[in-house]
Amino acid sequence: MAPNAPSEARSLEDPSVWVDLYGDYLYRFALARINDPTLAEDLVQETFVAALKSRRNFEMRSAAKTWLTAILKHKIVDCIRKRQRERIIDNEEALDRNLEAFFNEDGNWKIHPPKWENNPVKHYEQKEFLDILFDCLSGIPQRIARIFMLREMEGLTTDEICKVMEISATNCWTMLYRARTALRSCLDLNWFGRGL
């Protein structure tokens, strides 16, 4: 770690070291989600270019690696979304109708959240689980998926998200609610509910 530290610290100002410092790492991450070497390379390259564009906004906030990985994750989700356009709820109203279906007219659960039996603590170490999670994320409207990722993966606060996405706090909470509900039911169907 020590020999890398100085270059890591300077790396935001100096994009010429990005490929050497983070290229392989980002490529592995992309390949693990996308399973297509050429496409994975393209996504990494797009990540670098997107990073150049928005470099100034992020300089103060995070280490270059964290920030590049965050950009790459958004690109991966967008990419999976493009591939599977047909089965995607791409408008936010449809997502709401989906959400409403869980409750009956007097506001109680109509479809009860089932128990998540398929337990092991370390889902996140299982490639298959991560594939399903990214797949589920790709299936919800882009803006909502983005907000979810900023909040739950990158750990930004609502205030920070409001600035980045230019929305109100109330709007942000609503979208996070929709995202979480949609993901919960997607994971229900595709992971936890398997074998029932």
């Binding site: 490929v19 290229g23 270019v49 991560l130």
Partner: peptide
């Protein structure tokens, strides 16, 4: 939140080809 830690465990034998590396350098 754990996903960010998980990706540290990726297969380190995989790396970019020299050709891709050059292409990215020049794009940057």
């Amino acid at each position: 939140r754990h996903i960010n830690q998980h990706i540290e465990h990726l297969d380190t034998s995989i790396s970019l080809s020299d050709e891709a590396r050059k292409r990215m350098q020049s794009a940057i």
